[in-house]
Design a binder for these strands. Structure first.
Lengths: 121, 121
DNA sequence: CCGTCATTTGAACATGTATTCATATGTATA
DNA sequence: TATACATATGAATACATGTTCAAATGACGG
């Protein structure tokens, strides 16, 4: 059985204390890292990546996107909502249509970085 | 009822044909974009982001990571497995310990890009 | 106004996934 | 060899999430 002195989250004793302390001090706050995960989560879905990739060429309305990606407008719209809440796309209404485009040049380059990493394999 | 001529995936007719065709031609293949999504998926979890962030300072063994992040070794190990399969971390065995480190400078800069985006946000 | 169409929304369903717990593997040391 | 310990793994659970279907909203033209 384990002795009761260290029944904490990590029960082991292999710690390299100085290194761990150094890392703990230098780590960014948890909230920030959570936000980073949330940001990447937006890019972590096939449909959303395809939407963003398509929008990197041209602004498009929901129906255009649906056709370009062979999906229902509903599915596309649901994902656009996610992208909107993350402030990754912006939109402009024109009559019955709603045209979406990338919100930020930054986003495009993040995507591109991902694409290049995959291509280098 | 809808007429039977267009009971396809997108039933609507608002298409801006030339733009859509242009986009369809220029789009990268689906498989590539799927891989991109898979890559970002690895970065889309709080725990994994914290692990990668910690490893950006120093190589660490599983137990060090568990302590630095206040988690069980088991949970950390499970996530390290995900990172290993994605070839995002590499490891080195030394006695009872297994030391993990980032596999690639590229990874570190991708993470950094995400962090900067959030910080500017 | 009424009908059509583009888009949005909500609920339901199926699928994926992160953590926990228990257990297995493997390595050093007594 | 037996014990202790670092790590890995499998099953189970709980929770998140993507698509579909049905219906609502909102805008235009007749």
């Amino acid at each position: 059985m384990t002795d009761n002195s260290d029944h904490d989250i990590c029960e082991t004793r292999c710690v390299h204390e100085s290194v761990v302390n150094d890392v703990r001090e230098r780590m960014y706050p948890n909230g920030l890292l959570l936000d980073v995960a949330e940001l990447f989560k937006v890019f972590s879905d096939h449909t959303r990546v395809r939407i963003l990739h398509a929008l990197s060429f041209s602004e498009l309305c929901v129906c255009d996107l649906a056709i370009a990606l062979d999906m229902t407008s509903s599915a596309v719209s649901h994902q656009l909502r996610v992208l909107r809440s993350a402030k990754i796309v912006k939109f402009r209404k024109e009559g019955k249509n709603v045209f979406y485009s990338l919100d930020d040049r930054h986003i495009s380059s993040l995507m591109q970085a991902g694409i290049e990493h995959v291509q280098e394999g």
